[in-house]
């Protein structure tokens, strides 16, 4: 088998497949987000995010995406949504807030879109 056969990045619009390539790219960022499972770590992060970024060796792209709380940029920087959800949780962003931000809607519009899917 050729590795190229396993290129999952072809063509589902608006979707980044989180595979080995993304996992390598986002390891530090995801590791930081994983640490947020513990309240102690969340509190430490909130005391000084910049120090916490360096503790986990985030690169500049990852730091900036965190500062901006920009979910698409966090994914671009290698973030995995299951771990990013814990980052979003620190800022009390719901999954609807996260969805709204990524699709350029208000949270109310995004919730309506979900309701419409059930009609």
């Amino acid at each position: 088998m050729d590795l190229a056969e396993f290129d999952h990045h072809a063509g589902i619009p608006g979707t980044t497949i989180f595979d080995g390539r993304q996992a390598m790219k986002g390891y530090a960022l995801n590791k930081m987000c994983y640490s947020f499972n513990s309240k102690e770590n969340r509190d430490e992060y909130l005391r000084d995010p910049e120090v916490y970024f360096d503790k986990f060796r985030l690169n500049e792209q990852q730091k900036q995406a965190c500062r901006d709380k920009n979910v698409l940029a966090l994914i671009e920087a290698g973030g995995n949504i299951y771990y990013l959800a814990k980052f979003a949780g620190i800022y009390r962003m719901s999954v609807q807030d996260v969805g709204a931000q990524q699709t350029g809607m208000t949270t109310e519009e995004f919730k309506q879109k979900l309701l419409d899917a059930g009609r």
Binding site: P13, G14, I81, V95, L114
Partner: peptide, 13 residues
């Protein structure tokens, strides 16, 4: 369901 990306909110009944 899809939580991430521009396709967030995708549901296929």
């Amino acid at each position: 369901h899809q939580l991430d990306g521009q396709r967030a909110g995708f549901i296929n009944t």
